[in-house]
Design a protein around this nucleic acid. Sequence first.
DNA 1: TTGAAAACTGGCCGATCGGTCAGTCAAGAT
DNA 2: ATCTTGACTGACCGATCGGCCAGTTTTCAA
Lengths: 182, 182
Amino acid sequence: MAVTTPARERTRHEIVRQAMNLFQAGGYNATSLQDIATAAGCSKATVLYHFSGKPAVLAAVLEPAAADVAELVKAAAQLPRAEAQELAIQRFIDLAVEHRGVVDVLQDILAVIEQMPEFGQLVADGMRLTDYMAGSDDPLERDLAKFAINGLLGECRHSGERTDDDLRRLCDIALRRLLRRA
Amino acid sequence: MAVTTPARERTRHEIVRQAMNLFQAGGYNATSLQDIATAAGCSKATVLYHFSGKPAVLAAVLEPAAADVAELVKAAAQLPRAEAQELAIQRFIDLAVEHRGVVDVLQDILAVIEQMPEFGQLVADGMRLTDYMAGSDDPLERDLAKFAINGLLGECRHSGERTDDDLRRLCDIALRRLLRRA
DNA sequence: TTGAAAACTGGCCGATCGGTCAGTCAAGAT
DNA sequence: ATCTTGACTGACCGATCGGCCAGTTTTCAA
């Protein structure tokens, strides 16, 4: 028991992996526990053996990206405002590209996620990240930052149609135009 | 029978009105026919008496905005490219503000709408509108136009928090920065 | 080898969904 | 007074959902 049982981790990981694909392809609400179980090669009961419920599966799918966002917010917190903005823009694009699948999932649960207490930290981090990206307290700049994030979320969809590099280039141009950092 | 029966139109209109509110507040999938019926003060069977099914209710909600978009696309079609772009930007913002409730609804059904044949025309018009807003065949400009539309869609949410004028101003600035028309 | 813990599953539950249908009811025409 | 028709509804249907539980199979330390 020094290491976690390999079988447990393998099954858990496969469930999360397949859930990610299904959430991305059809959305969270349109994906049933049975769909996830079938894709993962186990029974629905097994999914509920490893996770307390459907929201817990979602949380596991989002977790790596959420951790990266939390880390980014913490890093930006101890920087002067201008540098924090630059860091937020740069790293946020990187994160969006790296976790583009998760971003895609996030898109159709934004309305739902805000009333799930288990995602409160992620929502709060998202708000703070928006503040850093805005670079000032000007309401217009804050709205433009939100505008930029919404646009970026939309661009991460249809994953197969664009390479990571193309996506990164596009987001970089768009954010710098919007936030006047070019 | 020279005019349509007043009772019929009154009930139909109330169903559409309440459906719009509910779709906007909770999304299309999360709103049941029973919810709509209760809000409209009639039975679920009555909703299905007036509309062939749930997608038909959605179509009725989207119809006025869809008609305006179709008209805009037709108008832009017979203009030189630069003028078509200016018209598309200007009018699209107006339409988004005027139909911000519909835009809000549209947000969470973008993935679903593409596989419903009854909305093929609306999807096609949206694509053509994107082309006009891009102003050129440059793939980057097209992507930026899509980026702009996605951002704008996101900004139309949380309707109560911003006045129409504020929303119009924000979208105008954002689109002109993104598309380099300022 | 064995026994207990971990991993897993089939079958079931209550709830809710979109949708159907037979029939009620008021109103206008004859 | 009777009939027709459009508007409307309660009751019901099959399907599917998330979740639960009793019980089986696998794994592995002693």
